[in-house]
């Protein structure tokens, strides 16, 4: 590939690059909490459950479209159902959001009165979601093509409307976290003390997981399972290895995610690869660099 071709590729994929960077930055920001709260397994599980939602949407999409085609011109209420189904058929993220929020409700329940530890419920969610994803994909119309999209996303095909939608969700998540940073930090660090000061710990936990679930659900369709999970883990780890203050950790995590996403996308274009592997590789290299810097201090 010539330099000119490469630059042309970057220009043509500008929206995809911006989308990748947005997904990476938001996942990295939330990833700091995920690592600090020691709920990495929740992140993996939510990502897998969200993927199962996308896979379910792939499976039922053609059926929804066919029902919509048959009913949309009929009499009410069938026409309304048709309109809904037509809208849903091309928006797998809606199914993914519903499934993910269902899982959030289950995972964020307070531990009292549970017959099983939270980890067991999360593990069960993970294996069920993995099995269902496989089943849905095998039975879907496109098969292996859907598997690739599920793992690697479709960020290359990101349009302006998709980008605005991603931006709106991520801006809302950022606003919630900017406004309630102190509450999220206090509840994450010392839930019992926070409760004794009158904080509704269960509600703050729920709000955190809702923002996490929303981010994962909208990000996973575009960036894929691998990138979303990696961007929640590797940049946060880089920030924690490199910095000893909360602000520094967030800044380094988000910056390393942005660099990983941009460099990863460029390498994918250069070597004609899926976007996830070079993005994850770059992020892992930055984490290794952070370890070296720390060791050299």
């Amino acid at each position: 590939m010539t330099a000119e071709d490469f630059l042309m590729g970057l220009r043509l994929n500008a929206l995809g690059i911006i989308g990748s960077v947005l997904v990476a930055a938001t996942c990295a920001f939330l990833g700091v909490y995920v690592v600090l709260k020691r709920v990495v397994f929740v992140g993996v599980s939510l990502a897998q459950i969200s993927s199962a939602g996308i896979a379910l949407a792939f499976l039922v999409g053609p059926w929804l479209a066919s029902v919509a085609h048959r009913t949309i011109h009929g009499a009410p209420p069938f026409s309304a159902i048709g309109i809904c189904f037509e809208w849903l058929a091309v928006r797998p993220v809606v199914v993914s959001l519903v499934v993910t929020f269902g899982a959030v409700l289950l995972f964020a329940r307070p531990p009292t009165g549970r017959a099983l530890p939270r980890e067991a419920s999360i593990g069960i969610g993970y294996v069920l979601a993995s099995a269902l994803s496989l089943l849905f994909i095998l039975k879907s119309a496109k098969g292996m093509e859907d598997v690739r999209e599920l793992l690697d996303g479709s960020v290359v095909a990101l349009g302006a409307a998709d980008l605005w939608a991603l931006g709106a969700v991520f801006a809302a998540v950022a606003a919630v976290h900017a406004l309630f940073y102190k509450q999220f930090l206090f509840v994450s660090f010392d839930a019992e003390m926070a409760a004794s000061r009158g904080y509704a710990v269960a509600r703050w936990e729920m709000l955190f997981f809702v923002t996490l679930g929303a981010t994962i659900a909208v990000a996973i369709q575009k960036a894929g399972l691998l990138s979303v999970f990696a961007m929640m883990l590797l940049p946060a780890a880089t920030g924690l290895v490199a910095c000893r203050r909360m602000a520094g950790v967030f800044i380094v995590a988000v910056a390393s995610a942005v660099v990983s996403a941009a460099v990863g996308f460029a390498l994918a274009l250069l070597w004609d690869l899926p976007v996830s592997p070079p993005t994850i590789g770059t992020s892992a290299a930055l984490l290794a660099g952070a370890y070296l810097v720390r060791a050299g201090r």
Binding site: L36, S188, D190, E192, R245, M246, V249
Partner: peptide, 15 residues
Amino acid sequence: YVPQRDTLDTIFPLT
């Protein structure tokens, strides 16, 4: 309230 100090996670980068 002063909780047991071992309940606080030292992984948090807090001064």
